[in-house]
Amino acid sequence: MLEVTGLVAGYGSTEILRGIDLRVEAGEIVAVLGSNGVGKTTLNMVLSGLIEPRGGDIRFDGRSLKGTSPAEIVAAGLIQVPEGRRIFPNMGVRENLELGSYGRARKNRAKNLEKVFDTFPRLKERIGQFAGTLSGGEQQMLAIGRGLMAEPKLLILDEPSLGLSPLLVEEMFALIERLNGAGLAIMLVEQNVVQSLELASRAYVVENGAVALSGDAATVAADPELRRTYLGL
């Protein structure tokens, strides 16, 4: 479904991604792991068309995404829920969700709004509130709900557990499992190595702008180097 080969990107004279290769198949959860500053968010920005790649190729659903605009990428069904949520604080919960269907699935807006409210009853309770006044967990729900409004083929979640209490992190991962259970392909970009590997079918560990380790989640989890670096074992 998504196939990234030899992806190179950066800002100004700084190169952040130095040849990333990864793929996500239909129906999978793929974890992209790595600590702060290895280029995970840059990778997402390139995939969504906000940063132009300098080299390599991105293929989604059989066609190259190089040179396509963010709007075209959204229309193709590659939807990202960004790090830091980036919801619209000055707008209501309903308006935030409505804008999720701005670039795709606009016709099914009413139906999908109901679906999102079924998934997140909490958001329905907050429907008239300004998004900026929601708690961190609710804002994360809103960001994911907004992403679901576009009927994604592949959903990229960038650090969905960041800044949430341990209990909410559990809830968030359970939700990701449920969404995937309904057939949605998910690329989970996380620092939370342990819980992400429990959920994912495959994983990529990014270090210094390149994939340092990849394979089945179980294999990656058993890697002695990973256990030393990320788990302190």
């Binding site: 959204v74 960004p82 980036r86 604080p89 000055n90 701005y102 670039g103």
Partner: peptide, 23 residues
Amino acid sequence: SDTGKAIRAVAKEKIGASLQGID
């Protein structure tokens, strides 16, 4: 209107707006 909402969205959150397919 959707365009009006897109304008208000871009006013506060440009990247978030781009990721919804707003040009």
